[in-house]
Design a protein around this nucleic acid. Sequence first.
DNA 1: AATGAATGAGCCTTCATTCAT
DNA 2: GATGAATGAAGGCTCATTCAT
Lengths: 224, 224, 224, 224
Amino acid sequence: MPETAVQLDVETRQRLLNVAAELFAEHGFNHVTIREICQAAGANLAAVNYHFRDKLGLYKEVVQMAADAMNKFKAEILDTVEPQPPEERLRGYIRLTLHRLLDPHQESWMEKLIARETTDPTPAIDLIIEKGIKPTVERNGRMVGELLGTTLDDPRVWQCFLSVQGQCLFYKMSMPVTLRMAPPGFQYTSEVVDALAEHVYQFSLAGIRALAAQPAPPQMGWRS
Amino acid sequence: MPETAVQLDVETRQRLLNVAAELFAEHGFNHVTIREICQAAGANLAAVNYHFRDKLGLYKEVVQMAADAMNKFKAEILDTVEPQPPEERLRGYIRLTLHRLLDPHQESWMEKLIARETTDPTPAIDLIIEKGIKPTVERNGRMVGELLGTTLDDPRVWQCFLSVQGQCLFYKMSMPVTLRMAPPGFQYTSEVVDALAEHVYQFSLAGIRALAAQPAPPQMGWRS
Amino acid sequence: MPETAVQLDVETRQRLLNVAAELFAEHGFNHVTIREICQAAGANLAAVNYHFRDKLGLYKEVVQMAADAMNKFKAEILDTVEPQPPEERLRGYIRLTLHRLLDPHQESWMEKLIARETTDPTPAIDLIIEKGIKPTVERNGRMVGELLGTTLDDPRVWQCFLSVQGQCLFYKMSMPVTLRMAPPGFQYTSEVVDALAEHVYQFSLAGIRALAAQPAPPQMGWRS
Amino acid sequence: MPETAVQLDVETRQRLLNVAAELFAEHGFNHVTIREICQAAGANLAAVNYHFRDKLGLYKEVVQMAADAMNKFKAEILDTVEPQPPEERLRGYIRLTLHRLLDPHQESWMEKLIARETTDPTPAIDLIIEKGIKPTVERNGRMVGELLGTTLDDPRVWQCFLSVQGQCLFYKMSMPVTLRMAPPGFQYTSEVVDALAEHVYQFSLAGIRALAAQPAPPQMGWRS
DNA sequence: AATGAATGAGCCTTCATTCAT
DNA sequence: GATGAATGAAGGCTCATTCAT
């Protein structure tokens, strides 16, 4: 009796992917059960196994899907941002990242998956690194390099990037605690996130500039 | 047959606590089974129930133990650091925190537990907040306040503290990914951590000073 | 290896229900383990969870099944008994009830479940009351009312019904003791139960009639 | 550290017996854990094993104690009741039994233990039968015999006794259900129990007299 | 192409019991 | 005379996975 009240024009496979992406991004690989996914997708319990062989298989496909979506999206906005000065690009990147990470209504799976896998990796971590993290590092490394006035092999690039990225991801990762310590009723509204982004931007820009003024340290041979 | 290869002079209860602290800090509450703990401690499966009633009971006691150790430790070093100027205190705090978070040979459960609970809270989260996070926030809020030349109710204090703390914790949280992307054989040796700490210090000090130069924004009524 | 010695034409779900009904009725909810049930039904340990979610879920379904069987059965015999005078209906009811309670070869789960839940209620007690006890009370309350020559709100109806029901159920409930005190080899054969029923009938009829001769006491507002 | 706040003049052994009697009578052998008993008695968890070898050993001793108390008590009141006519003795017996069974503040362990073991026997059942049930049967058999005008080997004696006893015990056994179906706030107050007893007495007296008027059936060879 | 049914491994917990002191 | 510590058996439950259709 497949007459569930869910969209039935989309094939089960796609429905599973959509539902799983949302659930995985929100609660993490281990905290989501196959039952939940199938139930939410109006599919049979064995559907995951049938279509993706594994829970992990489904997860990897979700990651792939999220990576595609992210890259397509990032490519789009890069075009509109590229001509701006690097300071504005940094500001824009921070704002966008924080919004995608903190806004509960944003369907930004990849960012959330990266945040999760970063702290609690699954066997899909290599895929995440390859498809999600490295492209981000590449893109933003160049941006930070410009601000530092140096090249990618200068370890300060990597370190400054991590400092910026760290601040942003930390806000996402620490949400459970932050919400508990915030005044009751607090939410990450658009205004709040904007203010946060502005702070991170000012803080980071000053940090980067201070390091740019220093002599370059020896290399460390980081993997691209 | 109690001649297991574990320290047999310590009582089971303490052995359980030690083993559990290590395992919980390393893998998180949910990823550690009672069986592992008891086996590693050379104790019976029911020992946890006998001594701590619950897996959660054991965990809470571990948290309590870690909190005590941390506070004792922090109090000690505060004495030696207090007379220094706030810049040096910030540098010292960052160095120490990073060492405790990243050095694999350091038995700094509390810091690691905080990092874990921050992203993935358990029912013991309130205890962690009360015993681990709030004291830290209190201590370091004052330090940042001095650097900013403002008081604790200025939202910039909270934000700058989060930026500093965020960078540090992020290095811990992202270790699984970092190690995978680093050159083969990379480790967080003492020298590496020192360099990291120096970077975070320079970066953050510049960030804080830049914000200190700006006019104070309106308050946000955060909980102490 | 599914070639267990159990009926294999029936689906597992039904087999579980049948086995569980018998075991629950005989030994009570708490004294039966799902391992026993699954083993007796030739099913996997997780089958209960799959089909009924819970041990309690299985139990409730058993109760529901027993209620349906009982009501269907009672409805049938009511047709054949209704036209008779109330004395004969009382005699018939007592005989039937005692047979269903005491005859070991009778598959009268509901009666036995009611007897069990009456003394040792489980979370399914409300279901039992609603599905099993209330219909019985309703049906037999009217019958006793006729004999008393009064209406259902007269407390004597409730009391006399309890006296009749109490005698019957007591024979069931006290079986463990009765069998131990009876002459060796004693069994509740059909003749024995008949004799018992005749005694309870004579005893109760006289009791009811004696009370019918008395003035009606004040009401007590019992729930239907 | 034995400085618990419980009576310390009574030896642990006696304290265990008292506490256990109450708990066993109230909740039944299986529903009471050794932990509860020892905790309530302010004794060590191993105390039961030390003093009584077993949970069952403790239980048996409780039964013995309850039997002694009951027989002493019954012997006392028999003296005051004996000279009365059998009708009054029946009335008194029913009233007393119901009060001891239903009144929650009455410390009448034996009656409650009998009620429990009757439906749900433990390995101590034989002891209960010997020490608790048989004496009761003996005593009351004679009383019913007088009313019937026949001797103990007449099966009607046994049957009538069971009918009386059944009604009384049934009120106790069915309390869980009765309380659920009674009007909210209902309790077995002294007045309610009195009314109940009067009903059972009237009902039973009429029943017995009706059977007395019939010819004696053949014997059945019941065990004394 | 898809599903209902079934499975087995593993987890946390409870409890009566026993051991060593 | 008594206890703190420890044990092992058993129970209910969850979950990813697989099988037969």
